[in-house]
């Protein structure tokens, strides 16, 4: 298992380094001089030049890349031009919205999807299976931001149970924060749950056709126990893969939902920073998100090894 994990870890690390080069290179070729943008169109060329020097923009690309990546390694993401505060603080400030939101949606989607998938697989071909999978098929097709609009209309405008948008922060206690993340989490979770339910069902059906399931049933083990203990565990690999992908998607993919609900999350930070050409912020946010995707994928690899003993021995 150590060899398997070491190999996955090295691949993750290499991907991260190459990704940092890509991020840096893409923003390097961007049109627009950050110094010029900060000072405005009427600034004197001398002032722009002085600021370029101060920001280190006149140094060779390789040196600037090394300085940037060296900073990232010790948690120094640089300073934002527009917010004039350290990028790491901006990210931390926004992450306390995005991370709880992603976790809430993932939890919701899992709690809905696994039982639905299990139930549908156990009642394969019956009316309840057809109805559930039909609903999942529609769920997959619903854009989450449209579902969000419908939720706002029903629960915020009409029933007035929750706020229609905005985020009060966590200082006033947990509940107001949770309350304002409730609708966004549901909006994000529904399409994800529909996908996850379909994957769970088909993974289970595949496993239920195996000989060891028949053996377990033949020796008199109750259906319920076979389903939960034998089938679900063996069906977990594809389910975990999708959950890993979904968590990564939820962390970064909330950008539209954050706009719908006016939530100050990471996606909106990146979106606003790019329109203001605050490149150091964009670089920081994208790197954090890419690193989380890579980390989540690595954790999924670790989880494979935990649920599948064959992987622990092989490789």
């Amino acid at each position: 298992m150590a060899a398997y994990l070491a190999k996955r870890f090295l691949i993750a690390l290499a991907t991260l380094i190459v990704a940092s080069m890509v991020v840096f290179a893409v923003l390097e070729i961007l049109p627009g001089d950050p110094a010029q943008l900060m000072l405005g169109m009427n600034a004197s060329p001398d002032a722009v030049e002085a600021l370029r020097e101060q920001m280190g923009l006149n140094q060779p690309v390789v040196l600037r890349y090394l300085a940037w990546i060296g900073g990232l390694a010790v948690g120094d993401f640089g300073r934002s031009f527009t917010y004039s505060s350290p990028v790491i603080e901006l990210i931390a400030e926004r992450a306390i919205v995005s991370v709880p939101l992603a976790l809430m949606s993932l939890a919701l989607s899992t709690v809905i999807a696994i039982p639905v998938g299990l139930y549908a697989a156990a009642r394969r071909g019956r009316a309840s299976d057809t109805a559930m999978m039909g609903a999942a098929q529609v769920g997959v097709a619903i854009p989450n931001f449209w579902f969000a609009l419908l939720l706002i209309y029903v629960f915020a405008v009409w029933l007035r149970l929750v706020p229609a948008g905005g985020f009060p922060g966590w200082s006033g206690g947990i509940w107001p924060g949770i309350k304002s993340l409730l609708l966004p989490a549901v909006a994000l979770a529904l399409p994800q749950a529909a996908i996850l339910a379909r994957v769970t069902r088909s993974a289970l059906l595949e496993v239920l056709g195996e000989d060891y399931i028949r053996t377990a049933r033949a020796k008199g083990m109750p259906r319920r126990i076979v389903l939960w203990r034998h089938a679900l565990r063996n069906a977990m690999i594809p389910v975990l893969t999708i959950m890993g992908l979904q968590f990564a998607f939820l962390l970064a993919g909330t950008i539209i939902i954050e706009n719908v609900f006016y939530l100050p999350g990471l996606g909106r930070l990146a979106f606003q920073a790019i329109t203001q050409r605050d490149l150091i912020v964009v670089e920081g946010v994208v790197m954090i998100l890419v690193a989380s995707v890579i980390a989540v994928n690595f954790l999924v690899d670790v989880a494979y090894a935990v649920v599948d003993p064959r992987l622990r021995l092989a490789a």
Binding site: L16, A19, V22, A248, F249, G253, V290, V293
Partner: peptide, 12 residues
């Protein structure tokens, strides 16, 4: 590598 970039955010 491409998969490591969040697709929607990158498209934005």
């Amino acid at each position: 590598l491409v998969f490591a970039f969040p697709a929607l955010l990158s498209a934005v």
